[in-house]
Each structure stands twice: as structure tokens, then as C-alpha cells.
Amino acid sequence: MAELLLRTQEIISRNFMSLEFYFLAGLLYFAINYAIERFGKYVERKVSVPS
């Protein structure tokens, strides 16, 4: 069971580029959340009741 953060830590333990790879992981997490948020906004717009 090696999800994103654990994989990142494994990689860092091999190459010691901790800042860079944590940043990359952060970017990936942000991308997922951004996608979820866009999807939510899209659905919200779709079902919104005009007034």
C-alpha cells in the first residue's frame, strides 16, 4: 500500500531532493482537489435555480 505521499518519501530517501519532491506531491494533490472543485462548481451551475 504505497499511496502518493509514501511513494514521495521513498523517492526522497533515495535522492535527497526533499523540497522538490514534496513540492511535486503538493502540486499533484492540488491538481486532484482543483479537479474535484471544478467538477463541483460545474454541477452547481448545472442545477442552479434561476432567480
Partner: peptide
């Protein structure tokens, strides 16, 4: 209710993405 809870639900979903780091690992 669905319309009303959609924004909060999206927040919760986004929150969930950060949780798998607690999952069992080989460690």
C-alpha cells in the same frame, strides 16, 4: 437538500483526498 449541500460536500470530498496517507503500508 442536494443543491444546498453540494458546496459542503465538495469540500469534504476534497478533504478526503488528503487522507489515504494514513493507510496501512509496508512499514
Amino acid at each position: 437538500a442536494l443543491r444546498q449541500m453540494l458546496p459542503t460536500w465538495v469540500n469534504t470530498a476534497a478533504e478526503m483526498v488528503k487522507r489515504p496517507r494514513f493507510c496501512p503500508s509496508s512499514a
